[in-house]
Design a protein around this nucleic acid. Structure first.
Lengths: 146, 146
DNA sequence: TGGTAACGGTTGACACGTCAACCAAGATAT
DNA sequence: ATATCTTGGTTGACGTGTCAACCGTTACCA
């Protein structure tokens, strides 16, 4: 049985795991911000909105496909509406439709190639096919709720 | 040459990569908070402080070994001082010593086994030795600045 | 010696996330 | 029909992160 505390080796694995995600995410976020003026979360919202929803979507559905809770999305949308990237308008009285604006669409179109290039440069092109396969398998394993 | 945009497969890899880190980090952070009343960042600060510094350390050194910038650490320490987990006191006139308090030490001692158990349950024990080795190798590759 | 650069740290503004409380509208049960 | 639950969404408070500006102090160089 393992000791109560993490061994040096376990600690190294843990730190490696943490750093891996943080650094890559940060770099891609910076590329996005510098080249397209969009943050990571903003890019996520806009791309789902444009992709799955043809530009218009119920807030609920958007939250589900992002894996976010409603509060997080509501705050994010408030900020993005302030920047003019999306619009909210109530259809029926109790559900809200989120719509990508012309500016949002334009910014997204601009950001997509930047994002693709950054993901390839900072992640995909650095790894072998087997390493990538392991990443995907590990992600599925760790994503299970037990 | 790859198309300008990410292919469905590339997209799957990217999403898998993002989720992997976020979910595990979130779970461990929750375990820590619920069982020991400490957030992830707070745990990081306290454990470095107790480990490398015997409880007392220059702010600079602490930032370096956390991989944080001075501003981030300053904000974090302000909050933690407010909670009574650490104390700041100027030694010489221009550098600040950070010291873990009795409460900080006690909370950390309480949190360490919780942290170890959570890291094992949410990460280490779910993966094979080869998968763990790949993670560490991949982390080193992705950590390089190019 | 005087100017300037580097070091160590703080602060304020703002984006992001989480949690809990709240609210209105429908749906359900009794 | 009234009470209650669920759904969809907002809000406020607070912790976390980043960026840029700022401020003393020391070091270094002309």
């Amino acid at each position: 049985m393992p000791s109560e505390l993490l061994s040096p080796h376990e600690l190294r694995v843990w730190h490696a795991f943490r750093l891996m995600g943080e650094e890559v995410l940060a770099r891609i976020g910076q590329d996005l911000t510098e080249a397209a003026g969009l943050s990571g979360p903003e890019f996520g919202v806009l791309s789902r909105l444009a992709g799955l929803g043809q530009g218009e979507m119920r807030q609920q559905a958007l939250a589900d496909c992002l894996g976010w809770d409603k509060s997080r999305l509501s705050h994010q949308l408030t900020r993005m509406a302030g920047r003019g990237l999306i619009k909210r308008h109530a259809s029926d009285k109790r559900l809200v439709l989120v719509q990508i604006t012309r500016l949002g669409r334009k910014t997204l179109d601009n950001a997509m190639p930047v994002h693709a290039e950054s993901v390839r440069r900072n992640l995909l092109s650095r790894l072998t096919a087997e390493q990538i396969a392991t990443i995907v398998r590990v992600s599925n394993i760790l994503g299970d709720d037990d």
